[in-house]
């Protein structure tokens, strides 16, 4: 029983010289490994506002609010940092090359006021239906779809006009001039139910179809 004691004694002496194992945390900041999964952060230039992350989030930490009464309608994407479980599903399912929302290295997330500090937001421009005013989707999302499907996008006025507007090729006054339900409406930016109703109403006029 003496020998084991010597072995432990050696370990104790070694520990005496190596100093404490614990880090001097509040004094010295902790830098996590680069693989660390920290708080997800939106990149407002890359996010397209498609809401895939909201759909997949297992904790329900992502939600959105559509502000349609503003001069420029906006979608506000909200990420609740206190509900987040840092699983990385949002990044994995992000349609914008997994770059719209990305896990960061942030881990110091404590705050005082849950009402004010527990979330972060980004704003994305919305495209509204020109007849009923309902939300079609985010501008960037429609452009993303139009770019993805290439020339096929020209079969859908909503898509190609959103895209062309970006280059300044479409005069907005021109399209919105005709307010009545005429054929000109077909070239407006419309939501799906309005487009269906429009197509149905202008059916007899088959020359252009």
């Amino acid at each position: 029983m003496k020998l084991p004691k010597i072995r432990e004694l050696i370990e104790a002496i070694k520990a005496l010289f190596t100093g404490p194992y614990t880090s001097k945390f509040p004094g010295k900041p902790h830098v996590p490994h680069k693989n660390f999964r920290g708080q997800p952060k939106y990149d407002s230039s890359k996010c397209v506002g498609c809401l895939a992350c909201e759909e997949i989030c297992p904790a329900g930490a992502i939600s959105h609010r559509d502000e349609v009464t503003l001069p420029v309608p906006r979608r506000i994407m909200i990420h609740y940092t206190d509900t987040c479980i840092f699983c990385g599903s949002c990044e994995a399912y992000c349609i914008a090359n997994n770059e719209g929302i990305k896990l960061s290295q942030d881990w110091e997330l404590s705050f005082f006021d849950r009402k004010k500090e527990s979330y972060e937001t980004i704003e994305k421009e919305l495209v509204l239906c020109e007849i009923c005013g309902k939300v079609i989707g985010c501008k960037d999302h429609l452009i993303w779809i139009a770019e993805r499907i290439g020339e096929l996008a020209f079969s859908n006025p909503t898509l190609y006009q959103t895209r062309l507007k970006r280059f300044g090729l479409v005069d907005e006054n021109l399209i919105s001039a005709a307010r009545d339900k005429s054929r000109a409406d077909r070239f407006k930016i419309l939501c799906a139910p309005c487009r269906r109703a429009m197509t149905k109403e202008s059916e007899p006029d088959s020359e252009m179809v």
């Binding site: 490994h33 693989n35 660390f36 479980i85």
Partner: peptide
């Protein structure tokens, strides 16, 4: 620490 390198977190490896 090893688990943090492999999975990105000390627990709840996801």
């Amino acid at each position: 620490d090893v688990m943090e390198i492999l999975s990105g977190n000390r627990n709840n490896y996801a």
